[in-house]
Design a protein around this nucleic acid. Structure first.
Lengths: 152, 152
DNA sequence: TCAACTTCTAGATTATGTCTAAAGCCGTCA
DNA sequence: TGACGGCTTTAGACATAATCTAGAAGTTGA
């Protein structure tokens, strides 16, 4: 996994380093939408000497080179999303958790007919409560419940 | 105007006070999407002794009783929107300004077919750049329809 | 007037993010 | 080898937004 990640970083013009790989290992493979603080905690669990500035720098580097998207959806939290394809988002009212919603699940009319704006990107943001049980989720990347082949 | 506002507050179960009316006067009538800090500044221009805590408390009270919506759209800013009808939002990449987009301007498919979620509200969030001149905007509710000077 | 209650205030505190200056690491070249 | 230069990392100071707290001030009704 780390080897492939190093390749990805290089391919994006980012010099891999131990710290950057540690950040990448978590943030580019998670299905969560972690905040910078969560990333810091996860990374420090492996490499305790990683400083806050490094994590912020690295996240910004990743965002700048397109490996990561930065989302502002929930109160007071900037979160990062490694899923690069367009998709919508659902925010759970109770837990604040953010979940991806496939692009095809919600049809949106043609936004380009809004003559006043040149729309670069758009998404539907839904808020409410989840029905039924929560998807199994790893809050710490120890166990791998499913190999998740759906990554295209 | 203030009288009507006092009625609205009472109708929402909020005891009107000088401070609360001052906040309401600005935030419930503006067409901007002000941040808490902007509200504080505007209110203090009229009632200089209003403390920050009061503004925050009042804004939260308004949100809790549904007079105001709280939006998290742009980085590091929680903004308030007195427009209660459903509508979409456009965020200007360059200026960070938020603009309302009429509900009818963008068609969205039926979100209730998402069985996994009980969607309370949703909106389309668009990002990009504005075409053409900015709409005239009053930043203070006095009778002064002068356009905003070109400041960020 | 008094007591109970609500509201408001200043300032401390917390949370999040940025900046800075120094140190570390690593490949290169004499 | 060892000095050099460039990039990366670090700890901690700084900045800012938001919240909390404890007491003061105001309001209400008898």
């Amino acid at each position: 996994m780390s080897l492939e990640l190093a390749q990805r970083l290089k391919a994006s013009g980012i010099q891999p380093s131990a710290q950057r790989l540690a950040v990448a290992e978590y943030v580019l493979t998670t299905e969560d939408h972690p905040s910078a603080d969560q990333v810091l905690a996860q990374v420090q669990a492996r490499l305790p000497m990683v400083s806050r500035a490094t994590v912020y720098n690295t996240l910004h580097t990743f965002v700048a080179s397109g490996l990561l998207r930065q989302l502002v959806l929930a109160e007071g939290r900037v979160v990062f999303d490694p899923k690069l394809e367009p998709h919508h988002h659902f925010v759970d009212d109770e837990t604040g958790e953010i979940e991806d919603v496939p692009w095809s699940a919600v049809q949106v009319g043609d936004v380009s007919r809004l003559k006043a704006y040149d729309v670069r990107e758009y998404m539907v943001v839904m808020r409410g409560t989840r029905r039924g049980p929560r998807k199994a989720k790893k809050s710490a990347p120890e166990t791998k419940p499913s190999p998740k082949p759906g990554k295209t």
